[in-house]
Write a protein that binds this DNA or RNA. Structure first.
Lengths: 106, 106
DNA sequence: TTGACATGCAGGTATTTACCTGCATAACTG
DNA sequence: CAGTTATGCAGGTAAATACCTGCATGTCAA
């Protein structure tokens, strides 16, 4: 529902990397993830919190560990809701651009 | 080529709005755009510069005006390169999530 | 219980970002 | 040319962000 949080969360390379890591192996703990990010645990934790806030990641408590799972729904929805219209108009937009760049705009 | 600039550019609601406005009517000037953004001209200009930097928008000089056109290519490419993998794994990821939330993770 | 381990919480600093004002430049218009 | 219009550039402030250290809590295993 909250496109802004989703796009903001995706706007940082560390957070995209976290999603990459989870896509490779879902259900990793905070320790697993921050080990692969060359970053203090707290920093990674903060990024993960943002991903959770954006609902891109869901956590499951298991004993003293916190497992992280990707929630693919908001990514899909935000794409459908916002990016898709540019795809639909893609050829027309590209046409506008080419015409202007070729100096045909009287 | 530069996914980071693209995602960072999309991470701000004002910049997404600018793209929305250009999608409605391509080739608008800076004045047109900032009028619809309730924001000083310079602020809008700065956002547009970022979009140009990310190659999401291309400008064409016409006399004393600067026209802005959407370039749909980087948006498409970044999607293909980065978002698509989550779409491909969408059902599997959703399955992981559901299984864990239902407490089936022994 | 005790020690080791995984995480949570508070706070602090440095960088980046968003937004603005003021002045400069360049181009149409009479 | 003179006035208006569209944009460019410099700089400055306030807020957000990224990153960290230090200490607290909760859990497992012997």
């Amino acid at each position: 529902m909250d496109d802004d949080k989703v796009f903001k969360a995706l706007g940082d390379p560390s957070r995209r990397r976290l999603l990459d890591l989870l896509c490779e192996r879902n259900g990793q703990t905070l320790g697993d993830l921050c080990g692969k990010l060359s970053m203090a645990r707290q920093s990674a934790s903060q990024h993960l919190d943002l991903l959770v806030e954006a609902n891109l990641v869901t956590t499951v408590r298991k004993g003293r560990e916190r497992l992280h799972f990707i929630n693919p729904v908001p990514l899909h929805d935000s794409y459908e809701r916002w990016v898709r219209k540019f795809e639909v108009n893609r050829l027309a937009l590209l046409h506008d651009l080419k015409r202007e760049l070729e100096g045909d705009g009287t």
